[in-house]
Write a protein that binds this DNA or RNA. Structure first.
Length: 519
RNA sequence: CGGAGUGUAGCUCAGUCUGGUAGAGCACCGUGUUCGGGACGCGGGGGUCGCAGGUUCGAAUCCUGCCACUCCGACCA
């Protein structure tokens, strides 16, 4: 590990990176495991983050011409049979509804055999099939195109092993689905969305990513091309944070999505689909969290400035509260990052010290402590969550009330930028491009010291030239990589002019690809 | 589904080997002293010891079966 990430300050114990992650999810009040296998309960603070993600991304989706709509949670089984690759990709993780009634049989409540469904229903793992079916009815003429829609929904994928936010059997996401008259239009859409995701991840989540195309074997089932944004977590692993697929005409053919062009000819549409999920929240935690808990970028913090009044059950409490209420009101009238500041006066009946640390753990960007001295002197004492400590000491600063109110918008923007800069520096300095052969790759990633259970050794990624392998050759390489727990992440969009030899075959390289361990 | 490990209070865990009737710290409730850097004293509430059988006078502890979770594989946004 490049950085000592223990769970010491959060739980009082040392542990691995996954232990730390779970501790932060719990201590920051983000989510908890539910009685339902593999599914999570997203708590108010965590859901608040998701709502911020929804609001900011939804605006971008709308501004780029897409409309929201809603399709059913259940999809008839037969819909999946239409696209062979697609069904194969998802068949192993589908939840199936087979009955519509329960009955007491031998004292046990169970599905009533008489209430078996004629055709089983699938709880959607993704909605290409049912949306494509609608497209086939909606689209008749080239004048109907393009169709640009999006839905915010929950989906279910029956995963073997789950982890809060990163992989849960049910998760929340948005899925965009579009249909176009030709390949060029659809490809443009696919890349436009990829760029939208990149910009969103970097400017809203403060999470630097690398946008690129997935190699053949990592494609979405049924897609012609799959693009992703990949983020680097603090243990050096990659997190696929968003995907955008060009589906060609395969779904259109499977579902008969056709239109008449200007000449009266019938043609198949070219379709795309794209999505980001609650996994983004896991990415935010593993990008910005520290030993004190979560650090939230102000753009997605449900509360950006939290004011903790130092109350002591004394007469001057009233003045402190009054002073705090006025401060919240003044802050709410200010705009930061394009929106009214989200400020809160925490009046919960709890020790001030506890409240303060709870907000530290939850990652509120600015935590203000207001005491009688502040109220009397017209000043504000606060700490920045992005730079909480100076050594072991908590760093706080004081400002005149008016100056603080004026400075708040810029301060929040500065925190947003600081979190991004920190993550960006980590990403940039941990991609090695001086590894040219498979042996070197194996040596670099393989030499993991025995303290693997201390969270592993931070290795980051390798960026190397390759000859865009496909088919059996690609599979063979993947097998070798698997032994090292490595995967091909993506081929970054920005590529140099010339390339070295392929890291796997020694043949002339045609592009550069990212290699790393992944979630 | 394969390999390993773990299930005891909200959390972290001790107790299990060697059977004797449920513990600690933190959290929670009451109270007093405190309070501007994760307070302290006193008092208190909370657990069918993962579930089901079995052995035994007696089971958290021994035996059998099952379930769940964690980590490593396989799968994946």
């Amino acid at each position: 590990m490049q950085r000592a990430l223990s769970v010491s300050r959060v739980t009082g114990n040392r542990g691995t990176f996954p232990d730390w992650y779970q501790a932060v999810v719990r201590e920051a009040d983000m989510a908890e495991v539910s009685p339902t296998r593999g599914a999570m309960i997203i708590k108010p603070w965590g859901y608040g983050v998701w709502e911020r993600i929804q609001q900011t991304l939804d605006r971008r989706i709308r501004e780029s011409g897409h409309d929201n709509c809603y399709f059913p949670l259940f999809i008839p089984l037969s819909f999946f049979a239409k696209e062979a690759e697609h069904v194969e990709g998802f068949a192993k993780e589908m939840a199936v509804v087979t009955h519509h009634r329960l009955k007491l049989i031998d004292g046990k409540l169970q599905p009533d055999p008489e209430a078996r469904l004629e055709e089983p229903l699938i709880v959607r793992p993704t909605s290409e099939t049912i949306i494509g079916d609608a497209f086939s009815r909606w689209i008749r003429s080239h004048r109907d195109l393009p169709v640009l829609i999006n839905q915010w929904a929950n989906v279910v994928r029956w995963e073997m092993r789950t982890r809060l936010f990163l992989r849960t059997s049910e998760f929340l996401w948005q899925e965009g689905h579009t249909a176009h008259a030709d390949a060029e239009d659809a490809r443009t859409e696919t890349l436009k969305i990829l760029e939208m995701y990149r910009e969103f991840a970097e400017s809203v989540l403060a999470m630097p990513v690398i946008a690129g195309e997935k190699p053949e074997n990592e494609r979405f089932p049924g897609a012609d091309n799959t693009y992703s944004i990949e983020a680097m977590m603090q243990d050096g692993k990659a997190l696929q944070a968003g995907t955008s697929h060009y589906l060609g005409t395969s779904f259109a053919k499977a579902q008969n999505i056709r239109f008449q062009d200007e000449e009266g000819q019938l043609s198949y549409c070219h379709t795309t689909s794209w999505g980001v999920s609650t996994r983004l929240i896991g990415g935010v935690i593993m990008t910005h969290g520290d030993d004190d808990g979560l650090r939230l970028p102000p753009a997605i913090a449900p509360r950006q400035i939290v004011i903790v009044p130092m109350l002591r059950d004394k007469p001057e409490d009233a003045q402190v509260l009054e002073y705090g209420q006025a401060l919240v009101k003044a802050l709410q009238e200010k705009f930061a990052l394009g929106e009214p500041i989200r400020a809160l006066l925490d009046t919960k009946a709890q020790r001030s010290a506890d409240k303060r640390w709870n907000w530290v753990r939850r990652g509120a960007p600015i935590i203000v402590e207001l005491g009688p001295r502040d109220a009397a002197g017209g000043q504000v004492t606060f700490m920045r969550r992005d730079a909480l400590r100076d050594g072991d000491k908590v760093k706080s600063q004081a400002m005149a009330r008016e100056a603080f109110i004026e400075a708040a918008p810029a301060l929040l923007a500065e925190i947003q930028q600081a979190l991004y800069d920190e993550a960006k520096a980590r990403l940039d300095s941990n991609i090695r491009s001086d590894i040219a052969t498979f042996d070197e790759l194996a040596e670099y990633f393989g030499a993991a010291p025995a303290d693997e259970d201390e969270g592993g050794v931070f290795k980051g990624w390798v960026r190397a030239a390759w000859s865009r392998l496909t088919g059996a050759e690609l599979e063979a390489v993947e097998e070798h990589l698997k032994a090292l727990k490595l995967t091909l992440r993506n081929v970054p969009m920005d590529q140099p002019e010339t390339f070295g030899a392929c890291i796997f075959t020694g043949k002339p390289g045609v592009e550069e690809i990212l290699i790393g361990r992944a979630y």
